[in-house]
Nucleic acid binder design. Structure first.
Length: 275
DNA sequence: CGTTACCCCTGGAGGC
DNA sequence: TGCCTCCAGGGGTAAC
């Protein structure tokens, strides 16, 4: 479900409420999401203070401390995960798998498909965690620009669209934003990454950044059932140029939008505007 | 090494 | 109404 903007909006929604507060208790209603959840997870988390909440790619990283002891709670929302803040004691509904209970509120993870991740990491820098260490560049960082993309894609024959979705290269760009950014940059999703020039990569990097930032500003939501951390719903989907618009006229040239499949995921593009 | 296929899981949509 | 198939925002792993 969530791409980078949704995760960032969730983080921003939690920031006013969680950092500085103590985890009174944790409840896990499933033995595993993407990974097994150790039986002692509630005991590990109870009593910790949340110092800060960071984001790396689509991972939320809760920096937790307690009397010199500490670690990181790693959360990934997968395809269908969402975080909400609810009043303590609110009955859990179907697919509400995890609660972090604070004095004044409960952070609740709902994830129908259970592709999400909740892991505990201690004894070392968060950057040393195997899931985090392999991640590529942050697309909203100053280092990410057209020249970086150009250099990173030399001799790559893969089509640009699945490459944009490879978190080992660049994080946070999922199926929706890959299609949208390529449309805005006028680049065909099927074009070999190594055969795109520097100038076109400058355009693409700018459109990736703009697409993500606009979505964050709009409240982050990319699809209908997304709910961010304080329960509000977003509206990104109504502004899509190509995603989910197979057969409908391109908003620029009226050519019907095409759908195809790349690396197991649906790609949308305009055959006239994108080359 | 780079790239693709498959799998994890549930629910909604559409065909019959 | 029910049953079936297909599809879905992610990403790790195995296999080519």
């Amino acid at each position: 479900m969530p791409e980078l903007p949704e995760v960032e909006v969730s983080r921003l929604g939690l920031l006013p409420h969680l950092p500085g507060n103590r985890i009174a208790g944790a409840v896990f209603r499933t033995p595993r999401l993407r990974h097994d959840i150790p039986a002692d997870m509630p005991a590990r988390l109870a009593g910790l203070h949340v110092d800060a909440i960071h984001r790396r790619g689509k991972y939320l990283l809760f920096d937790c401390e307690s009397a010199g002891d500490g670690g990181w709670l790693i959360v990934h929302l997968g395809m269908s995960g969402s975080l909400r803040l609810v009043a303590n004691g609110t009955p859990a509904q179907k697919h509400d798998h995890v609660d972090l209970v604070f004095a004044d509120t409960t952070l609740r993870l709902r994830d129908p498909r259970r592709f999400g991740t909740v892991l505990w990491h201690e004894g070392g820098s968060i950057e040393s965690h195997p899931l985090i260490a392999v991640l590529g560049i942050e697309p909203l960082s100053p280092q990410f620009d057209g020249d970086w993309l150009y250099l990173a894609t030399r001799k790559r024959s893969t089509p640009i669209k699945p490459l944009l979705m490879d978190s080992h290269l660049v994080v946070g760009i999922g199926n929706i934003y890959a299609s949208e950014a390529l449309f805005r940059a006028g680049i065909s999703p099927m074009r070999a990454a190594g055969r795109i020039g520097r100038l076109r990569y400058r355009k693409l990097a700018g459109e990736i950044r703009a697409t993500l930032q606009e979505s964050i500003a709009a409240g982050g939501s990319s699809v209908r059932d997304y709910v961010h951390s304080d329960g509000g719903a977003g509206s990104f989907q109504v502004t899509c140029f190509v995603y989910g618009r197979e057969g409908q006229p391109c908003r620029i040239c009226q050519t019907p939008i095409r759908a195809s499949r790349q690396a197991g995921r649906t790609t949308f593009h305009c055959p006239h505007c994108q080359r």
